[in-house]
Simulated scan of single mutants.
Amino acid sequence: MGKKQKELIHVREKVLANGNISLYLDIYFNGKRKYEFLKLYLIANPKTAGDKEKNRSTLQLAQAIKAKKLVQIQNNEYGFASPTKTKTNFLEYFSSLSELRKEEKGNYGNWESALKHLKEYCKDDTTFDDINTEFVEGFKNYLRVTKTKSHKLLSQNTQHSYYNKLATCLRHAHDKGILIVNPTSSVKAPKPGDPERDYLSFEEVKAMAKAECRYPVMKRAFLFSCLTGIRWSDINKMTWSQVQDLNGIPRIVFRQKKTQGQEYLDINEQALVYLGERSKPEDRVFEGLKYSAWHNMELQKWCIRAGITKEITFHCGRHTFAVMMLDLGADLFTTSKLLGHRHIKTTQIYAKVLDKKKQEAVNRIPDLGI
């Protein structure tokens, strides 16, 4: 009688803090062990017939998933049959995904920053064989305690951003069959903090308009953003064919680079002035506009000449427009449409920045008579 073959997959149970039981697959093949949490839960100590039936159905589903995974292993579809895939260098793989985002200036910068931290966190020869839940949890904790050059802890939003870059990379590797199980599925991502929205007041915008800027095209583009809320990426690629006229009202017709949403944005005559002299339909409106650390520094110098000490980036022009609209009495829905937001909750962030009711309340405090 032949030796009984060991089972490759077991359905295991893990008791949670709330008393319920989480089901997961324990997969052992070719000397490697992997865990896959199913997001299926049993009711501990079921008492009613309904609870017992629910547990029976949940276990039945877990066994069906187990059977499917077993077939995938046997058909060489589950990733175990390609050990060379798991030997892929992790940092090189992450870097290749980063390079794909080179055209997305801000996003690419975040990917590159996340890569720098990953290089600090793990060894150069780290492969996907080394990537598991402990690796992900470790990077999450690394971000929590890491300090910047100015000896400050990374902000909540920065931690959230860098972790998400890792999660995107591992999800991509999982989709490509390099990872059998995506380890981020059982790790809770760092929560983002309330994002800060640096913006200029209307008086500060006026001061910027009067101050000298080394690059006139930057000045026109930034002030245009302050008056329209259009992002740098859309301003940078804007052509004269997108500057149109509807019954005497100037408007910009464009597809947002970030969301791919088609936008029809009416603008006022004041914003129209900053577009300059019309050229050929295919020509860029802001010809010569560039993005770099050097140009960001020149933007900051321009702010200083205007008497502004805030740390302003080009994107602050969009924030300035949003706050200005709400300050002038535009409702959230209208402001959301002007900004091209998909969800009004995104626009509500600006309402927190400018809460007139709070301002009015504190102004009711009586004079102390000092």
Rank of each mutant, 00 (worst) to 15 (best):
G2M: 10
L8I: 11
I9W: 00
H10Q: 13
H10A: 12
H10C: 04
V11C: 05
K14H: 12
V15P: 01
N18E: 07
G19T: 09
L23D: 06
I27P: 06
Y35L: 10
L42R: 01
I43C: 04
D51P: 01
D51T: 08
D51G: 11
E53N: 10
N55I: 02
R56K: 13
L59H: 05
Q63I: 10
I65G: 02
L70V: 03
V71M: 13
Q72G: 06
Q72M: 15
Q72E: 15
Q74K: 14
N75C: 05
Y78M: 06
Y78C: 03
G79H: 07
F80G: 03
F80H: 05
T84Q: 14
K85H: 08
N89P: 13
E92Q: 15
E104G: 00
Y108P: 00
K119P: 08
D124C: 00
T127A: 13
F128H: 06
F128P: 06
D130F: 04
E134Y: 12
F135A: 10
N141E: 13
V145P: 00
T146Y: 03
K147W: 01
S150Y: 02
H151S: 13
L154A: 03
S155T: 15
H160Y: 15
A167G: 02
T168H: 04
C169E: 03
H172S: 12
H174D: 04
G177P: 07
V187T: 08
V187E: 02
P195V: 08
L200Q: 00
E203D: 15
K206S: 10
A209S: 07
V217D: 04
I230E: 04
K237E: 12
K237H: 09
W240V: 09
S241K: 15
S241R: 15
V243G: 01
V243I: 14
Q244M: 11
N247S: 11
N247Q: 11
G248Q: 06
G248H: 05
V253D: 11
V253Y: 08
R255E: 13
K257Y: 04
K257A: 14
T259L: 08
G261N: 12
N268V: 10
E269A: 10
G276C: 07
R278N: 09
R278S: 14
S279K: 13
E282Q: 10
E282N: 11
W294P: 00
H295N: 12
E298C: 05
L299W: 00
Q300I: 01
R305K: 13
K310M: 10
E311Y: 09
F314W: 07
H315A: 02
H319R: 05
F321M: 11
A322I: 01
M325A: 15
A330N: 12
L332Q: 08
T335D: 03
G340M: 06
H343R: 15
K345I: 06
K345L: 05
D355Q: 11
K356D: 06
K356L: 13
K357D: 14
K358I: 14
N363Y: 04
R364H: 12
R364M: 14
I365L: 14
I365E: 02
